[in-house]
């Protein structure tokens, strides 16, 4: 009987929570969930409709070079993706460990703030990796080494790679390193808008190292 009484209350709470979202991700998706460092994280947009970017990522102009506008495509066969595909990627691939969201920025950037569920492989690691190191990284990502020594990428994880945004070439350097050792292009996705694009939409971010 008590359960029956509590049911409408619980239902109203759930209903209330979903209908209260003023700033949804899309018309059908008010928010989404993923995991980061073993914790469940709700991905939603900032609900304050008067909010503006104020702190970081409001800067328009950094010296070019090195911070130049990047071409749309890194490689003809590498798919470009955007925010919705990233969220889809988290739910379809990251959740069942068939995909990894890669933050290709330096560790210091990653620690300050990143996209939920992203792991950090700084671009110089791949850019300067020798074959031995590349093999180690690829093994972690699911590559098998056959008896004859050939690399089998059949069960390798699909990657979605991002850096700071359109003015940042860290993803390009990372991808170049991956392609040098024949990581399959169909397993690579490039989120060109990057972290600035994510921030611009007021989407949830993860802070690993807080500045006080």
């Amino acid at each position: 009987m008590k359960k029956l009484l509590l049911l409408p209350l619980f239902a109203s709470l759930v209903w209330g929570d979903s209908t209260h979202v003023v700033v949804k991700i899309t018309n059908d998706i008010p928010y989404a969930y993923t995991t980061d460092s073993g914790k469940k994280v709700k991905i939603e947009r900032i609900q304050d409709t008067s909010n503006r970017l104020t702190d970081d990522y409001t800067k328009t102009s950094r010296p070019c070079p090195p911070f130049c506008v990047q071409p749309t495509k890194i490689h003809p066969n590498i798919k470009n993706i955007a925010e919705l595909e990233i969220i889809q990627f988290m739910q379809d691939k990251v959740s069942n460990n068939t995909g990894v969201l890669i933050d290709a920025r330096l560790k210091s950037w990653f620690e300050l703030e990143t996209i939920p569920s992203a792991i950090n492989i700084p671009f110089p690691v791949m850019q300067n990796a020798n074959k031995e190191k590349a093999e180690m990284i690829f093994k972690i990502l699911g590559m098998k080494v056959e008896k004859d020594g050939t690399w089998n990428f059949d069960k390798v994880k699909e990657l979605a790679v991002f850096c700071n945004g359109v003015w940042c070439e860290q993803s390009a350097h990372f991808m170049t390193g991956m392609l040098k050792y024949n990581y399959p292009t169909e397993k690579l996705n490039y989120y060109r808008s990057g972290f600035q694009g994510w921030k611009l939409l007021g989407l949830t971010t993860i802070v690993h190292k807080e500045i006080k």
């Binding site: 980061d36 460092s37 914790k39 900032i46 620690e111 939920p116 971010t205 993860i206 690993h208 807080e210």
Partner: peptide
């Protein structure tokens, strides 16, 4: 700010 603090 919609930031979540999580230890890496």
């Amino acid at each position: 700010y919609n930031k979540v603090n999580i230890e890496e």
